[in-house]
Simulated scan of single mutants.
Amino acid sequence: MPLILTEEQTMLQAAADGFLTENAPIAHLRKLRDDADPDGVSRDLWRAFGEMGFAGVLIPEAHGGLGLGAVEAGVIAESLGRTLTPSPFMGSAVLSARILTDAGSEAQQAWLPRIAAGEAILALAADEGAKHAPARIAATAERSGNGFRLNGAKGFVLDGHIADALIVVAKAEEGTTLFLVDPQTPGVEIERTLMVDAHNAARVVLTDVAVDADAVIGAVGGGEVVLEAALTLGRACAASTLTGAGDQAFKVTLEYLRTRKQFGKLIGEFQALQHRAAHLFTELELARAATLGALQAIDAGREDAGLAASVAKAKAGRVAELAVQEAVQMHGGVGMTDEFDVGLFMKRVRVLNELLGDAGFHAERVARSGGY
């Protein structure tokens, strides 16, 4: 399949870029940060996301969504990377929506129309340590009466402090199991953790949290496959956001090279900077191709989609990091000041690199798959 967007996907990209540029430019992030907004996101913007159809891009039409695919979700995620917009898109419209669509009961899928409309925010509580390690879940789910008691601690829960519902990953006797949990349930403690990029995450502590059997998403012990499918999609979308952030940082830098004068010349006329810019351009194109290839593999249901997503996440992460480093360096001393946006891109890329596994995590996955 050609590694280019279709006409319809290109139109979606233009719509997402236009909407976010108008309604949530980088000034929107700065205002939320500087005002110390308690939510850290705009619920009005999230509802507008729903009105535009963006929040329901992956949700089936029967549940009020657009019923589109991973490529379209990646297109929106890339636009979010360009504007650095704080949004529940990843946690709600990608990870949670995929889990509920794949394995949710009829009652649980009642959340899908609310997500699609931008009326509800859901959060996936999976990671527990400093690094992404979905294979090492320590949170437990012990049978109790007709339900379970959940115990454990979760970190890096995207938008967990404002979530209307949590999808908790825990180990039952039968294996990895997913639970839909009301954050107001006794024993659930949630602490917001404002990240360096002014985006949102939370720590969630579960202490003897009692849930009924109907809180189980899918089958008891059957959560690993469902979780992996959602994480694969999330990693590819995270790669899209990294590509968007890296590309926008590159564009900002090119504009600076075209306007900043030093020693009586535009600094973009210096050959050394031209070489660095050309190298970065080619690397961004490679990252974009790897990311689109992974998204297409997910839509095609290919067996190697998980590995393709790992390749994309690792490549996009390294390239975006290169892009923001070059941006700061080429801006000189002013690149380190808060007045210029390039520093915000650097912070965002740093957090995104850790989200759902850094480059080292995914490089190891690919190596192990090859027998190394």
Score class of each variant (00 low, 15 high):
330 M>Y: 13
308 A>I: 07
342 V>Q: 11
338 D>Q: 11
316 A>P: 01
321 E>F: 05
317 G>F: 00
358 D>V: 03
308 A>F: 04
336 M>A: 15
310 S>N: 05
362 H>I: 06
328 V>R: 09
315 K>S: 02
328 V>M: 09
348 R>C: 06
332 G>I: 09
350 R>A: 10
341 D>T: 13
344 L>T: 04
346 M>S: 05
320 A>S: 09
308 A>W: 08
323 A>G: 12
304 D>V: 13
311 V>W: 08
327 A>R: 00
320 A>L: 03
342 V>S: 04
340 F>W: 15
333 G>H: 09
316 A>I: 00
355 L>A: 10
342 V>K: 07
325 Q>R: 14
316 A>G: 02
307 L>E: 14
364 E>Q: 15
343 G>A: 13
363 A>Q: 09
322 L>D: 08
312 A>E: 04
304 D>Y: 10
328 V>D: 00
310 S>V: 05
326 E>A: 08
355 L>I: 14
361 F>T: 07
331 H>T: 10
336 M>F: 14
310 S>I: 05
359 A>M: 04
339 E>H: 14
333 G>A: 14
304 D>R: 09
344 L>D: 08
323 A>W: 11
364 E>D: 15
311 V>S: 03
334 V>F: 14
318 R>W: 00
306 G>N: 13
344 L>R: 06
364 E>N: 13
336 M>C: 10
323 A>E: 05
340 F>L: 14
313 K>T: 00
318 R>P: 00
346 M>L: 11
304 D>T: 13
331 H>W: 15
327 A>T: 02
308 A>V: 08
344 L>H: 06
327 A>K: 00
358 D>F: 02
337 T>P: 04
318 R>K: 05
334 V>H: 12
356 L>R: 03
335 G>R: 07
